[in-house]
Nucleic acid binder design. Structure first.
Lengths: 152, 152
DNA sequence: TATTGTTATACTCTATAACTATA
DNA sequence: TATAGTTATAGAGTATAACAATA
């Protein structure tokens, strides 16, 4: 049984140990994908985190902050400044809940709705590129399944 | 052609839009894996980033800072405080290079070497758990290949 | 008592610009 | 002039603790 050595193309270094680690490979992919997203979506002036919030509110209007934050795996404390920024840009709004005076119901504004549609079209292109890199629709499906298994 | 709706188990929210996105699924997996790593390796008092540096120095002793940082996809500016901390803990050390007085050659200390061996054993367990979640060695291999394709 | 939103705080990771000393 | 290391700084992302208003 021979240990295969993995050499990094650019640096010429032995990266076997981190190359074989699921943890480090996901870190690397996430970093690269994040960079690609940022450079592609810099015109929209939005971060992946903010985009996720808008998408989730678009699909689930009227939910309270804790629910949206929860579904994104975020702390509710970190959710506050994020939607403060989105609300200041008039992309979404808090409305006082009638049933529970503690909570805010979240909605997109008309501008937010248009914004989401616009950026969704751009993201479809981004995702199509990911599919191409992965090797087609079947490969993508397999990849998403494996990712989901890892996230249990 | 029917659009399938994906409902989050815990929150009951429609997460179709982010669930189908490679970007968001990788973000989620990376976050969850990072949390798992932190809780598992809190005894070692080390972050994934620091661990990666130690692993790379272990496999490539004597290389200069820029090379190690490069192989990890890090900026050399961010690399400095990271190894300052590792050096303060006597896990690694900078040695002045004879050939090039500008650069430092990086080496693990004896303590750092023992530390890496110890944490490598723990990470092997961690990776084995990842393999089990993914569905076995073949599934893991397929997953790593797809991740690599995405990181081109 | 528990929950919702909020503030404050800290740490990790990343990015950019500018400086110094060497090459 | 280019490179290696460094400093300073800023922005995301995440984590915890504590508080006021409400349930």
């Amino acid at each position: 049984m021979s240990a295969t050595v993995v050499i990094d193309d650019r640096s010429g270094l032995d990266i076997s140990l981190i190359d074989r680690s699921v943890l480090f490979q996901i870190r690397r992919s996430q970093t690269l994908l994040g960079r690609r997203f940022q450079s592609r979506f810099s015109d929209f002036g939005i971060t992946p985190g903010e985009y996720g919030v808008l998408l989730l509110i678009a699909s689930n209007p009227g939910r309270k902050q804790t629910q949206i934050a929860d579904a994104l795996g975020m702390q509710r404390a970190n959710f506050v400044p994020l939607i403060n920024s989105l609300e200041a840009r008039h992309l979404m709004e808090r409305r006082a809940s009638a049933q529970d005076k503690r909570s805010n119901a979240l909605y997109l504004t008309a501008a937010g709705d248009a914004f989401v549609k616009e950026i969704c079209a751009a993201e479809a292109t981004f995702e199509a590129e990911c599919t191409a890199r992965l090797g087609g629709a079947k490969a993508r499906e397999a990849f998403m399944l494996l990712l989901a298994r890892l996230s249990v």
